[in-house]
């Protein structure tokens, strides 16, 4: 099980690459510009059942997207939760 950390917006090359690399049971953490994925609940990452997706709360709030994530009931973690995810996953890959 791998933790994939995506830092770029949906439709960017890294976002497309991580979709190819994600395996069932993996976890995807969206940070920095990647949290703009919260604006579109129809994106594949929200509708697929194979892997878990988290949004970094601080980066959502910094972009004024905290409420929209709540409205769409998207899962968020704070920085403490980010560290917890790295504890749970022996391997992590950052996509940028």
């Amino acid at each position: 099980m791998t933790l994939h950390i995506l830092t770029t917006a949906p439709n960017s090359d890294p976002a497309r690459q991580v979709e190819q690399a994600l395996n069932a049971g993996d976890t995807l953490l969206l940070i920095e510009a990647a949290v703009t994925a919260a604006l579109d609940p129809q994106l594949n990452c929200w509708t697929q059942p194979a892997y878990t997706v988290w949004l970094l709360e601080e980066d959502l709030v910094a972009r004024g997207l905290g409420n929209i994530a709540k409205k769409h009931r998207l899962a968020t973690v704070n920085m403490d939760g980010f560290v917890a995810l790295t504890e749970q996953h022996e391997q992590s890959v950052t996509w940028y």
Partner: peptide
């Protein structure tokens, strides 16, 4: 680039969790 800010905040959180 936001990466250094993210790294600093992550570093503080790592230490706060006792690592």
């Amino acid at each position: 680039d936001p990466a250094p800010h993210s790294a600093l905040r992550f570093a503080e959180a790592v230490l706060a969790r006792g690592h």
